[in-house]
Design a protein around this nucleic acid. Structure first.
Length: 646
RNA sequence: GAUCCCGUAGCUCAGUCGGACAGAGCAUCGGGUUCCUAACCCGAAGGUCGGAGGUUCAAAUCCUCCCGGGAUCACCA
C-alpha cells in the first residue's frame, strides 16, 4: 500500500457500508471525505447531512449508526492490514483516525522510496504550452516582471512534476513605438556610447534612454502648453464640455486646475498630433517597417544590449525557456487567418477597408478591429496567428498565457474569436491572470523611473543575506559566504513573491524589504539545513529496509511525529491542487507548514534524536530524511535551491 | 456609463467549486538554550469576515442591492 491507495481503500469500505443501508448510488457518489478541522478528531471525516433525506433521521443519529456499521465492514475486510485506527461519530460526522504506526510506515516509506514522491499525480498527462515573461525591449525588468517570470517558471515546473509535458515559451516584444522612443533618445543624447563604456547592464543602459525620452517629451510639452495651438485645443475642449453640461459657463478660480487636468489627459494626443519627438519616433517606426538599414542596425544593436541584460536576470532568477519568439518575426502571422475568416464570413470588412469581428456574436459589446484600414496588423491579429500556429505545430492540449489582469478583457476576446475560428480550441486556452505589484505610493511607472528594479532588488536581498551570514560565522570562506548569501537572498525574494495567490494585488514596500524570519524562504531553507545537520551528526542516514525499517517506522506515533507524517501524507494531494489551480502559493504554504511541523518536533526535548536509541531513533531519522527530501523537492518547484548548511 | 477583480486581526495576506469553534506571518506582550544550527520553539492578546436583505438544515463562501478601492472598455501593446 502507498499513500494514494489509502483514500480509495477507505472509500470502498464506506461505499460498501452505505449500499448495505440502501443508499442510492447517486447519493453515494455525492459523498466525499472531508478533512476534520482538528487532527485530534481524525484523519478523514464522512459528513452525514446528505444521507438524512434517504434515511429520514437527523445527521447525528445517522453518524452514530454508520460508525458502528463501518466498524463491522472494516473488520470483515482483510486487505486493510490494520490501517484503520478508530471510527467514531462526532455530531453529524463520522471521523476516521488511521492507526498511527501503520500510517507512519506507509507514508514515510513512500516519501523515501518513490523516485518522484508527490509527482505524476494528474489523471491524464497532457501537452501544455506556457507563455510567460514576454518583456518589452526598451527597459529593464521590474518587480512586476519578476512576479510574472517566477509565476510562469513555477507553474511550468509544477505542471511537469505533476505529470504534464510542458513547453516554456517567451514572446519578446522587440518592436513598436516604445523601442523607437529609446532609440530616438539615444540618437539625441548618447551617440556612440555603449553599455560597457557606461558601466551598465545593457537593459539598464537602454532603459536610461527610455526615461530620457520621456523627460525630453515633458520639456517639449511644457513649452508647447504656452503656444497659441495649445490654447486653441484647450478652448475647443472647454467648449465641448460646456455643451455637454460638464463645465459651467464661467470657469472662474477653478481655471488653473481645469487647465492642468486637461493637459494631463491631452498628453497622448499631443504626442500623436503635435510633438516633434513623437513625429521622430513614429518616423523611425515607419522606417523600421520599410527595412531602412540605418534604423535596423541601431535597432539590432540596442535590442542586443537589452537581451543580453535579460539573459543575466533570467539566469539569476532561475527562469528558462524552451522556445523564444520575437514579435519582429511574428507580428504578421495571423493576417492570413484573418483573411480566411473574412472569406468564411466570420469577420466583416468595414467601409474604410479595416477588418473587424462583431463581438455581439459572442455576447460582448461593440466590435474588435483585426486589420487596420491601412492593412497592418494589430496585437490581436498576432495573438490569433501565434495561437493557431502553436496548436498546429505542437498538438497542444492546453495553452496558458501568464499575463497581468489588466489584460483580462483582451484574452476574453482572443479566446472567443479563436473558438469561432476553430471550435476544437474551446477549453484549451487559459489566461493565468495575476494582480499588479504596487508600491505604497501607487503604481510603478517605468517611464518615470519609479520602479523596484529586478536586478537592484536581487542585489539588496543578497546583501541582507550576506550580513546575516557574516553575523553567524566568524570564519567562513568568502566564496562560501557569497554562495549562501545568493541562495538565501533569492529564496527570500522568490518565496515572498510566490506566497501570494496569483490574483491578489500585492503591495510591496521597499523600505520594509523582505523578511528572513517567520513564513519566509530562509525559514524553510533553515529547516532543511537543520535536518541535514542531524544526518551529519549521526554519521549518515541509516540504510534500513524490510523488517528493520518497518519496525523503526512503526515505533513512531507521538502527536508531534504524527503531525509531520500527516503533512507528508498531504503532499501528493497538494501537488494535484497546485497543478489544477496553477497556483504556486499552494506550495509555499505547504513548505512552510511542513517546515513548521518539523521545527516543533525538533525543539521538543522528548524528540531529540541524538538522545534516543533503538528503533525509535531510527524511525525519527527516517522521518527527518523523508521531510528533508520532500522539502528539497517542494522548494525546487518554486525555484528555490536548498543549502546543506546555513 | 458598462463589464471584470478586490474589501477578512494594527499591518501584509490565507480561507471564497456552502459544512464542525474564521487561520498564518509580521508587529505587541510573556516564557524557553549545560542539548542535533535561536534565521528556532512555546504561550497570550487581537476579528459586527465592507453594509443590508435573500436562498439553505448550514453562508466569509451562493444570489440581489448599496458603499469603498482597482482594472478594462483603441484601427496601443
Amino acid at each position: 500500500m502507498n499513500i494514494r491507495d489509502i483514500e480509495p481503500h477507505l472509500a470502498a469500505i464506506r461505499d460498501k457500508t452505505l449500499r448495505e443501508v440502501e443508499i442510492p448510488e447517486e447519493a453515494i457518489d455525492e459523498i466525499d471525505f472531508e478533512k476534520p478541522p482538528d487532527p485530534e478528531m481524525g484523519d478523514l471525516a464522512i459528513p452525514c447531512y446528505a444521507l438524512a433525506p434517504h434515511l429520514k433521521k437527523p445527521p447525528p443519529e445517522i453518524a452514530e449508526q454508520l460508525a458502528e456499521r463501518l466498524e463491522a465492514t472494516a473488520e470483515d475486510d482483510d486487505s486493510d492490514s490494520g490501517l484503520i485506527g478508530t471510527i467514531c461519530p462526532n455530531g453529524p460526522y463520522v471521523n476516521i483516525t488511521l492507526a498511527p504506526s501503520r500510517l507512519a510506515d506507509v507514508v514515510v516509506t513512500d516519501a523515501l522510496d518513490r523516485e518522484r514522491f508527490g509527482g505524476d499525480v494528474v489523471e491524464t498527462s497532457e501537452h501544455w504550452m506556457i507563455e510567460y515573461s514576454a518583456p518589452n525591449t526598451n527597459k529593464p525588468q521590474h518587480l512586476g516582471h519578476v512576479r510574472n517570470d517566477l509565476l510562469g517558471e513555477s507553474v511550468a515546473t509544477l505542471a511537469e512534476f505533476g505529470g504534464h509535458d510542458v513547453e516554456r515559451v517567451n514572446l519578446i516584444n522587440d518592436r513598436g513605438i516604445h523601442i523607437c522612443k529609446s532609440m530616438v533618445a539615444y540618437q539625441i543624447d548618447g551617440e556612440r556610447e555603449t553599455p560597457d563604456e557606461a558601466g551598465l547592464k545593457g537593459d539598464h543602459f537602454v532603459g536610461h534612454y527610455y526615461v530620457r525620452f520621456n523627460e525630453l517629451i515633458d520639456d517639449e510639452y511644457d513649452e508647447w502648453k504656452s503656444t497659441d495651438e495649445a490654447e486653441r485645443e484647450f478652448r475647443d475642449w472647454v467648449e465641448r464640455e460646456r455643451e455637454a453640461d460638464r463645465l459651467p459657463d464661467e470657469l472662474g478660480e477653478q481655471e488653473p486646475q481645469i487647465r492642468e487636468a486637461f493637459f494631463e489627459s491631452f498628453r497622448d494626443n499631443y504626442f500623436n498630433d503635435y510633438s516633434e519627438l513623437g513625429e521622430r519616433a513614429r518616423d523611425m517606426l515607419q522606417r523600421w517597417e520599410e527595412g531602412d538599414d540605418e534604423v535596423l542596425e541601431l535597432w539590432e544593436t540596442m535590442n542586443g544590449w537589452v537581451l543580453d541584460g535579460f539573459d543575466e536576470t533570467y539566469e539569476r532568477l532561475g527562469v528558462e525557456f524552451d522556445h523564444v519568439y520575437y514579435e519582429s518575426n511574428t507580428y504578421e502571422l495571423g493576417r492570413e487567418i484573418v483573411e480566411q475568416g473574412l472569406e468564411a464570413g466570420l469577420f466583416e470588412r468595414l467601409d474604410d477597408g479595416a477588418v473587424a469581428f462583431d463581438l455581439e456574436e459572442v455576447g460582448l459589446d461593440d466590435r474588435k478591429i483585426l486589420l487596420r484600414s491601412d492593412g497592418t496588423t494589430v496585437y490581436m491579429t498576432q495573438d490569433l496567428g501565434t495561437a493557431m500556429q502553436r496548436f498546429e505545430a505542437y498538438d497542444l492540449d492546453q495553452m496558458i498565457y501568464v499575463v497581468g489582469d489588466e489584460q483580462d478583457y483582451h484574452f476574453d476576446v482572443l479566446f472567443r474569436i479563436l473558438a469561432e475560428l476553430e471550435p476544437e480550441l474551446e477549453g484549451k486556452l487559459h489566461h493565468l491572470s495575476y494582480g499588479m505589484v504596487d508600491l505604497p505610493e501607487g503604481k510603478m511607472k517605468s517611464r518615470e523611473g519609479k520602479v523596484v528594479d529586478a536586478d537592484d532588488l536581487m542585489d539588496e536581498m543578497h546583501d541582507l543575506a550576506e550580513d546575516a551570514v557574516r553575523d553567524r560565522y566568524e570564519t567562513l570562506d568568502e566564496d562560501e559566504i557569497e554562495r549562501r548569501a545568493e541562495r538565501i537572498g533569492l529564496a527570500a525574494l522568490t518565496y515572498h513573491v510566490l506566497d501570494y495567490n496569483p490574483r491578489t494585488n500585492v503591495q510591496f514596500d521597499p523600505e520594509e524589504s523582505i523578511d528572513f524570519q517567520g513564513r519566509t524562504g530562509p525559514y524553510c531553507l533553515y529547516s532543511y539545513a537543520r535536518i541535514q545537520s542531524i544526518g551529519r551528526r549521526v554519521g549518515g542516514w541509516p540504510d534500513l529496509d524490510g523488517e528493520a525499517r518497518a519496525e523503526a517506522l512503526q515505533a513512531l506515533g507521538t502527536d508531534r511525529e504524527m503531525e509531520v507524517v500527516r503533512h507528508l501524507r498531504n503532499w501528493p494531494d497538494r501537488i494535484e491542487e497546485a497543478v489544477r489551480d496553477l497556483d504556486p502559493s499552494e506550495i509555499t504554504e505547504y513548505v512552510f507548514e511542513l517546515s513548521q511541523s518539523f521545527s516543533s518536533l525538533y525543539n521538543d526535548p522528548d524528540h531529540r534524536i541524538v538522545d534516543l536509541e533503538g528503533p525509535r531513533r531510527d524511525g525519527l531519522l527516517l522521518l527527518a530524511r523523508a521531510v528533508g527530501r520532500t522539502l528539497e523537492t517542494a522548494l525546487d518547484l518554486i525555484g528555490i535551491d536548498v543549502l546543506e548548511e546555513m
